[in-house]
């Protein structure tokens, strides 16, 4: 597969101002997604996964304190273009997004088919009936009967709603789909169905995903590469195999150890301490207060850069420097 980059994020920043101070939700992250590839961003709640998605899609809340960096979409730095151009070049056939919380992401007073067709009507000036027939195609693609297009959101089950949202995101034929926790608030069976659907779409139609989740298992199912986020930063990024098996960052390691396993006779370990306060993040490596391998005078003083940990595998931990050096 030729590595043609669809999305490249450089030093992306998104800070919110709150009454308590500035929350560094996304604090200078870098990653890239190639065509046909799936990058999973995993991390616990409040680590800045969803904010990353919002920053890329430029759907900012009102209390933004800082917003910067570069986001290259194909050959265009979309951080530099104005809202109208952004709409034309990115929202249309560019990047689309599936939001978390399928239950509330559909307007309860608009028919499903009209809602799925909306992006086409808004952006591509489709006529309503053409757009609706496209919407029916999209519904078929996600395994729904086009007849449900006549229904309203409250008549559908959670899984069906999530499928509708996926149909809505792919109806405009985007180059990359951002999936923001697409299976949260769904039961395990429905979750598996949705994951199978996403996998099928990827294999058959070659979709490119940016898959945001807190579930390491789900990430490994769908992703080619995984980025682990902690406190607004990416702490480890690499292929699935590298991150899951040749783990380099202590946080990733402990995160993997905390997942209960079915077949091995092993108790899940937990990570001591609590996630850092993003208003006053710890000095140095933000994981150092919880890290068992802390090097005093180094980890709590200097922020580690992304260090080489193998081909296409990076982690930000001073231990790697010691290893290599």
């Amino acid at each position: 597969m030729v590595n043609s980059k669809v999305l490249e994020v450089r030093n992306l920043l998104l800070h919110y101002s709150t009454v308590r101070g500035v929350v560094k939700a996304v604090d200078g992250i870098n990653f890239e997604v190639s065509k046909g590839e799936t990058l999973a961003i995993v991390g616990e709640s409040g680590s800045g996964k969803s904010s990353t998605a919002l920053a890329i899609m430029r759907i900012l809340p009102r209390n933004v304190a800082a917003y910067g960096g570069e986001v290259w979409f194909k050959d265009l730095d979309i951080m530099k273009i104005d809202e109208e151009e952004f709409r034309r070049k990115v929202r249309v056939e560019g990047i689309s997004m599936v939001f978390q919380g399928a239950m509330n992401s559909l307007n309860p007073v608009i028919r499903i088919e009209d809602q799925v067709a909306e992006p086409l009507i808004v952006n591509m000036k489709f006529k309503r009936d053409e757009a609706v027939s496209e919407a029916h195609e999209a519904l078929k693609l996600v395994g729904l009967d086009p007849a449900i297009g006549r229904r309203y959101a409250h008549e559908l089950s959670g899984g069906m709603k999530q499928r509708v949202l996926i149909a809505m995101s792919l109806v405009a034929k985007p180059s990359i789909i951002i999936l923001d926790e697409p299976t949260s608030a769904l039961d395990v069976i429905t979750q598996a169905n949705i994951m199978n659907l996403l996998k099928r779409l990827k294999e058959e139609l070659g979709f490119t995903y940016l898959f945001i989740t807190h579930d390491l298992g789900l990430a490994s199912e769908l992703a080619d590469r995984v980025a682990v986020m902690y406190a607004g930063k990416i702490v480890e990024i690499g292929s699935c195999e590298d991150v899951y098996i040749h783990t380099k960052h202590p946080y990733t390691k402990m995160l993997l150890d905390s997942v209960p396993t079915l077949r091995e006779d092993k108790h899940p370990a937990f990570i001591p301490g609590a996630p850092p306060d993003l208003v006053k993040p710890p000095t140095g490596c933000s994981f150092h207060p919880r890290c068992p391998f802390i090097v005093r005078g180094k980890c709590d003083v200097e922020t580690p850069p992304m260090l080489y940990a193998g081909e296409g595998h990076n982690a930000s931990c001073w231990l790697l420097e010691k290893e290599s050096g």
């Binding site: 899609m57 759907i59 709409r87 929202r91 249309v92 689309s96 997004m97 939001f99 978390q100 919380g101 509330n104 992401s105 559909l106 307007n107 909306e118 992006p119 808004v122 952006n123 949202l165 809505m168 405009a172």
Partner: peptide, 12 residues
């Protein structure tokens, strides 16, 4: 509401 956010994301 999330659906307003979704509408903004597709450029309404």
């Amino acid at each position: 509401s999330p659906y307003i956010e979704a509408a903004r994301s597709y450029g309404a």
